[in-house]
Structures are given as C-alpha cells and as structure tokens.
C-alpha cells in the first residue's frame, strides 16, 4: 500500500512524515513525531484527551487522518509553553490544583485555549459547555472550571 507524504507545521516547526491512509493524526503525533503529550483515551472522539489545535481550531486528533494534515498548522501541548514560560492556562491549572492524574490535562488545556480565543470572558456555564467534550474522571471539574476562568481573567488583564 502506498503511503502519503505529508508536510505540515507542528508547534511552529516544519515537519514531514509518511503515513498510511488509515493512520490518524493522533497516531502520527505519538508514534512518528514522538509527541506523546497528546493522549489516547478512546480513539472514537468521545473523551477529548487527544484534543489539539488545527489551524487554530480544537479538534480530536483521533478523528483526523494524518493524510489530511498537508500544509496544516498543528498545535500540541508540547508547544503551549513558550521559551520556558508556561501559558497562563498551564500556570492556573497548577495554581488551582486543576489536575490529579493529569492524563486529560493536555486535551483540556488545548480545548480551553481554543475556547478563550473565541470568548475571552466566558461565564461558568460557557466554560462548562465549552469543555463538555473533554472527560475528566478525577477532579469533578470544579477546579478545572475555576482555573480556566482565572486564566481568562489573567489573559484579559495582560492585554490591557
């Protein structure tokens, strides 16, 4: 079976990879690019653990094929902190103890980042619905919601 040759931008870097037609972006990230920060919780788009940004939009990377990523810009958790400085969302997740086991955290951080891009001042309800596609079994969501709202406030303050 012939493979697809794909060149894309991942976390700002140009990358090239070959993949089978059936290989997902999640497979490519984890097994070809060794970016294992993106997690596989279900493989069917139900848990959100594999959420990454594709041209700025949050997607389940288990539902996108590697072959679809030509010339796309992908942002994963490994690219969220810049130059040794944590993104406000990452910092607020630590400050609010918004993670326990941490396996859903990369996906939730990416989803929250996309959410705050669309809505810089979300209500609690908007955060809850914005994150409704991301399962967390440890925290009961309370501290996650607080962390996202606090990060939004911090990001608004930084802009002004």
């Amino acid at each position: 079976m012939s493979k697809h040759f794909v060149s894309a931008i991942v976390n700002g870097d140009e990358v090239e990879f070959r993949c089978d037609s059936g290989e997902t972006l999640l497979d490519v990230l984890r097994t070809k690019l060794y970016l294992t920060g993106t997690k596989n919780g279900c493989g069917t788009g139900d848990c959100g653990a594999c959420t990454v940004l594709m041209n700025g939009r949050a997607i389940n990377s288990c539902l996108v094929l590697g072959a679809e990523c030509s010339d796309m810009s992908i942002e994963t958790i490994e690219g969220m902190a810049v130059g040794g400085e944590l993104h406000p969302l990452q910092q607020k997740f630590l400050d609010h103890a918004a993670l326990q086991c941490g396996v859903c955290t990369p996906g939730i951080l990416n989803m929250a980042k996309a959410l705050l891009k669309e809505n810089s001042n979300p209500s609690e309800t908007e955060v809850r619905f914005g994150l409704a596609g991301n399962l967390c079994r440890c925290t009961g969501y309370d501290k996650i919601v607080r962390a996202v709202m606090d990060a939004a406030a911090e990001m608004r303050a930084r802009r002004t």
């Binding site: 984890r30 097994t31 060794y34 970016l35 294992t36 920060g37 993106t38 997690k39 596989n40 994963t76 958790i77 490994e78 969220m80 902190a81 944590l86 990452q90 997740f93 630590l94 103890a97 993670l99 941490g102 396996v103 955290t105 990369p106 951080l109």
Partner: peptide
C-alpha cells in the same frame, strides 16, 4: 499548606510519561 505540586509542570506540558508513552 498549598504548595506547587512536584509533578505538576510535567503534567501541564505533556512531558509526563504514562503507560503508552514509552518507546
């Protein structure tokens, strides 16, 4: 007291290695 969690940064940056992350 509330102190920064020792494994926290690795878990918000994707560095933490789980069961399927070893190659």
């Amino acid at each position: 007291e509330v102190t920064p969690r020792p494994d926290g940064v690795d878990k918000v940056t994707g560095r933490a290695r789980y069961g399927d992350d070893l190659k």
